[in-house]
């Protein structure tokens, strides 16, 4: 068991290294131009957002619509730390993530009692509150946007490594006794409590870790864009992240990674459809809810993939 786990990890790291090497090579060879390297950076940021949201919404099973809010807290906090405190980039990034995490705990304690639709609405409201606060504070420069905090010499590697670390940490959480506790809450909260799991603690823990990495993604986004406006982090962004998680499969880490990458790159090819994107997201979410509610998942799976046993997601 131990050997297999270490082997899997090593293989995954080698795969990450190969992908990294390939991208760096293509960049230096000029095949990947400035425009496309920007898209790859956004893909890394979206991977962080999707995998971290998957912990709260997939593994823990709490559908939330406030992930962009936590991203916003991370983005502004780290930008302000760089701008006014002149802290080095990585330290600002960390402080931004911790701020998002703390806000996550603060929001989580009263709201995680709620379920389903109620939690969705509350987190959506939180998302809007954060946006309005960022819009009206003088320190964030409101709608005019915050600028001048960008650090020099931060290249693609930082974004890529951040994404790898996020995936690794979430994977480790899931594969521990803590992760099993989190998944058991999603499966049956009462049975989980009656198996001795402190469910409130683990709900907040999963929520806090999820918010922490949303904060990391926010800080990276700020650094990449060089300018922050509150409207970037509205509920449309939260919906987009949730769609990535739902499309990739709730509680499926690989799925989240692939969905995040595809959903970053695909729109570049489908510029003509840009106006219909939100419409499409809505349809995807509604379909996903119906499939989940009616438990059609296994039936659809067995219809399309004629394999004998339904694979256990990991």
């Amino acid at each position: 068991m131990k050997k297999k786990q270490i082997k899997d990890l090593i293989i995954s790291f080698i795969a990450a290294l190969v992908i990294y090497g390939l991208i760096m090579f293509l960049m230096s060879a000029g095949v990947v131009d400035y425009y496309w390297s920007g898209i790859l950076i956004m893909a890394c940021i979206n991977v962080i957002l999707a995998t971290s949201l998957n912990l709260a919404s997939g593994y823990l099973g709490q559908l939330t619509l406030g992930h962009a809010g936590f991203m916003s807290v991370g983005a502004y906090t780290s930008a302000l730390c760089s701008l006014y405190l002149h802290l080095p980039f990585l330290l600002s990034l960390l402080i931004g993530a911790i701020a998002a995490c703390l806000i996550g705990i603060l929001i989580g304690i009263p709201t995680l009692r709620l379920k389903g639709d109620y939690l969705c609405i509350i987190t959506l409201a939180f998302n809007e509150i954060i946006r309005v606060i960022m819009l009206n504070l003088s320190i964030t420069n409101g709608a005019k946007g915050l600028m001048g905090f960008q650090a020099m010499n931060i290249d693609f590697s930082v974004y890529f490594i951040s994404a790898v670390i996020t995936i690794y940490v979430i994977y480790c959480v899931v594969k521990s006794r803590h992760g099993r506790a989190i998944i058991s809450i999603c499966e049956d909260e009462t049975a989980s409590e009656l198996s001795g799991i402190p469910t409130s603690y683990y709900k907040i823990l999963a929520f806090a870790i999820s918010a922490f990495f949303a904060g990391v993604a926010g800080g990276l986004y700020a650094q990449y864009m060089g300018m922050l406006v509150p409207s970037t982090f509205d509920y449309n962004k939260s919906v987009e992240i949730l769609v990535m998680v739902v499309l990739g499969g709730l509680g499926n880490l690989k799925g989240s990674i692939i969905a995040a990458i595809v959903m970053t790159i695909l729109p570049e090819y489908l510029r003509a459809f840009a106006d219909y994107r939100m419409l499409l997201y809505a349809v995807v979410l509604i379909a996903a809810m119906i499939i989940k509610e009616k438990n059609l998942g296994p039936r659809i799976k067995s219809k399309f993939f004629k394999n004998k046993t339904v694979e256990v997601d990991d």
Binding site: V173, S176, R177, R180, I183, S184, E187, D188, G196, V312
Partner: peptide, 29 residues
């Protein structure tokens, strides 16, 4: 019956064993 249906048989038991071990989240990371 209220099992954790999508978890494996052994993981169901391991949820029950949660407090038998006390390694921290950090040590698993």
């Amino acid at each position: 019956i209220r099992l954790f249906k999508k978890m494996s048989v052994i993981d169901n038991v391991k949820v029950g064993l949660h407090h038998s071990q006390n390694y921290s989240l950090l040590s698993s990371i």
